[in-house]
Nucleic acid binder design. Structure first.
Length: 477
DNA sequence: ATGTAC
């Protein structure tokens, strides 16, 4: 988009004044080059979000923003339930509670490299990946209810993981307020044999090495040392989350006239938070969050099993942290002079709590929340930390990845999956995938420069970089 | 993102 359509607040911040049906202003965090590469549709989608009933304060686009379904991916917006505020299924995203978790191996890269091929094969054999991938677990209806009610805590109770994992997951691994009975039979059916699977698209399982420590104090609190091997898991709520989004987006579209909501776009279908449909979606969405948390927990267990087989010893692989970047949470935020309970939509945006926040585990209290940012396959990923002052800037949110630079279709025209895999291998990155088409769509060249995204995130005061990591193995869905 | 369209 052209920078001259926006008000430049700083080299990192651009303001969209309310016009037309917009109720509040928008802010895009970007450098001028990132802004020029951002599609014009991000602005249109952000203006649409700013037009929704009950929207409060300012709506935000993170530096990795690109167009999505309804909301931009990289969009943050808070809705006030006491002022007609709405919840939008498209605003949460079709992959409910899609997110990233990082495990610490305690291993040095030099001890892993002799086993790189073996570990890549073991992970690919252990972790079901790809469209429609199914796992070894079968859930009957009662088990599905338990999973949807308790999330990662259910998985740990079933033996997939350890109790200490839960302390490093948002809400201790269980989204409160889940109502499994509001998840349709169709959604349940789609999930029956998809627990513990990676899925496709931008989902991946990566073995990474810490190649730069930027903030030594925070790195120590996070347990990160130069040369350390990490495991990153990026996935979500699979078929169940998708079906919940489909079911409720349809209902929200049909009911919008009843609630006298004028939708800027049908993809922004929404319902008042204080309506029957709004409450029902919240209950189903929270069940979807639990599905994603349980899924990442089972995958964690499978990763531990693969490590054990390859290294012939138990590798603890403790969980650093687990963040969802497609979600809506009830949170307390200051709006002007008062504090209000708001429903914060973060779609392709990561919560980034500042130091001292009561929701943080004690060991992160001094340095802030780990913010896990997944780059593209061939480039770096980052671990950041939340910073003081981010609440007034982005409702304590930060970027979630590098952000797409081009559509999947364009990426398929521009890149060949096999060539991408070959080129990555020459760079020391082993890719294992069921789909070369998927690799082409996810080619590093299809993404923005993650370093530029992190630079903006830092200078805009959304989060600060702690460590930079690069991949050595990527299991691509 | 997704049993890659009802």
């Amino acid at each position: 988009m052209r920078p001259d359509t926006l008000e430049r607040i700083s080299p990192w911040e651009w303001r969209l004044q309310p016009t037309g049906s917009m109720r509040v202003p928008g802010v895009i965090y970007a450098s001028e080059p990132l802004l020029r590469d951002m599609e014009e549709d991000v602005l249109i989608q952000l203006a649409g979000v700013a037009s929704l009933p009950g929207v409060t304060g300012t709506v935000y686009a993170m530096p990795d923003a690109h167009t999505g379904f309804g909301f931009p991916i990289g969009g943050v917006a808070a809705m006030d339930p006491d002022r007609g505020g709405v919840i939008s299924a498209g605003g949460v995203g079709y992959d409910i509670a899609c997110g990233v978790r990082v495990l610490l191996s305690g291993m040095h890269i030099d001890d892993l490299l002799p086993h790189q091929e073996t570990l890549a094969d073991a992970l690919f054999a252990t972790i079901p990946a790809g469209v429609g991938s199914t796992g070894a677990i079968r859930l009957n209806d009662d088990e599905t209810d338990a999973m949807l009610a308790r999330g990662a805590a259910w998985a740990v109770g079933r033996g997939w993981g350890r109790g200490d994992d839960l302390a490093h997951i948002e809400d201790h691994g269980t989204a409160p307020g889940a109502e499994p009975e509001l998840v349709s039979a169709e959604a349940r059916k789609r999930q029956r044999d998809e627990m513990g699977t990676l899925g496709s698209g931008n989902h991946y399982l990566e073995i990474q090495v810490v190649e730069d420590i930027i903030d030594a104090t925070a790195a120590e609190a996070f347990g990160l040392r130069l040369g350390d091997v990490l495991v990153a898991i990026h996935c979500g709520s699979r078929g169940l989350g998708h079906q919940v989004a489909t079911d409720y987006s349809k209902l929200m579209l049909a009911e919008a006239p009843k609630h006298k909501i004028t939708l800027p776009h049908r993809d922004l279908a929404c319902a008042p938070i204080r309506s029957e449909l709004g409450r029902r979606y919240l209950g189903a969405m929270r069940a979807g969050i639990n599905c994603a948390l349980a899924n990442r927990q089972i995958l964690t267990h499978l990763v531990r099993e693969a490590f054990e087989r390859v290294f012939r010893k138990s590798v603890a692989l403790p969980l650093l942290y687990d963040v969802a970047h497609n979600t809506c949470r009830e949170e307390e935020h200051r709006v002007g002079p008062v504090s209000r309970r708001l429903y914060v939509h973060r779609k392709g945006a990561t919560r980034a709590l500042p130091p001292g926040h009561p929701a943080l585990p004690a060991e992160f209290s001094k340095v802030g929340q780990p913010v896990l940012v997944g780059g593209s396959m061939g480039t770096a990923s980052y671990i950041l930390a939340g910073v003081a002052g981010s609440e007034g800037k982005s409702l304590s949110s930060a970027c979630h990845g590098a952000g797409r630079l081009m559509s999947r279709g364009e990426a398929k025209r521009r890149f060949q999956g096999r060539e991408v895999v070959g080129s990555l291998k020459r760079q020391g990155i082993l890719v294992r995938t069921p789909s070369f088409k998927g690799v082409a769509e996810e080619a590093p060249g299809a993404y923005k420069d993650v370093h530029m995204v992190i630079e903006v995130t830092q200078h805009a005061g959304l989060a600060r970089p702690v460590a930079k990591v690069r991949p050595v193995i990527n299991v691509k869905g």
